[in-house]
Amino acid sequence: MEHMAALQRTVAELREHCPWTRALDHQALAGYLTEEAEEVSEEIRAGSMGDPLRKELGDVLLQVVLHAQLAAERGEFTLDDVAEAMYSKLVRRSPHVYRPDGTLDLAGRVSRRSRLPGSASKLKRNRKKENSHVPHRQRLWARDPRFPREPHGGG
């Protein structure tokens, strides 16, 4: 994970020495995170794998590292805390694979297969959201406070 450590160090240095990066806050970054996640989704839907997907995932990772760095500067949490929370969630949500302490439980896997969480149906519901047909940039604009929600004029 040497590149992950280098990424964290670089983001910390940019926060300290780059005026633009130093001025960023969670609110300013929120739209970028959404946009980058949409770009990953577009690459996948387009069938682009390999390098194009790797680069888009890197853009999402940068957003996560930036948000964690902001939080660390405020003494709230670190990137490692984010990873720990996700690790714990994966273990907790996968009792058919892991024991509560996080160790693999391959012997119990088959017997618990019938108790699998309903994540597949949840994923299908999420894919069918009302605005899934709307281009991602249009969805971003709809959430941007600089753009009016209602048309101007009488009424």
Rank of each mutant, 00 (worst) to 15 (best):
G58R: 04
R115E: 13
F77D: 01
E84M: 09
L106P: 03
L29F: 01
G154P: 06
E130V: 09
G75I: 11
R149C: 00
R143H: 04
L61V: 13
V110T: 13
M1Y: 10
L7F: 11
A46C: 07
N126W: 05
S119P: 00
D59V: 04
G154A: 04
C18I: 02
E38P: 01
M49W: 13
F147N: 11
A12Y: 03
L33P: 03
Q63K: 07
Y98P: 06
G155K: 03
L140P: 02
L70Y: 07
Q69F: 06
T21G: 00
Q69M: 12
Q8K: 15
S111E: 15
P151E: 03
Y32V: 15
M49Y: 11
A142M: 10
L14C: 13
S121T: 10
D81G: 07
P52H: 06
L62G: 04
K124T: 08
G108E: 08
L79F: 15
S88W: 07
R74W: 05
S121Y: 04
R113H: 14
F77K: 03
V40H: 01
V110R: 13
Q69N: 14
A83G: 09
R139V: 07
Y32G: 13
Y98E: 05
H136F: 15
A6C: 00
P95R: 05
A107C: 01
R125G: 02
T103Q: 11
H136E: 09
M86K: 07
H26W: 08
R92S: 10
R45P: 02
R74I: 06
E130Q: 09
R127C: 10
Q27M: 07
A72Q: 15
L7Y: 05
G31M: 15
R74S: 14
A107E: 15
K124P: 00
R15M: 12
A83H: 12
N131V: 02
W20I: 14
G154F: 02
L79W: 14
A46T: 03
H152N: 00
N131F: 08
D81A: 14
R113I: 09
G58E: 07
R139M: 07
H26A: 15
S114D: 09
G153N: 00
G108I: 08
V91T: 05
H96P: 00
K89H: 09
P148W: 00
R149A: 09
L140F: 05
R74G: 10
T21S: 12
V82T: 08
W20K: 12
H3P: 00
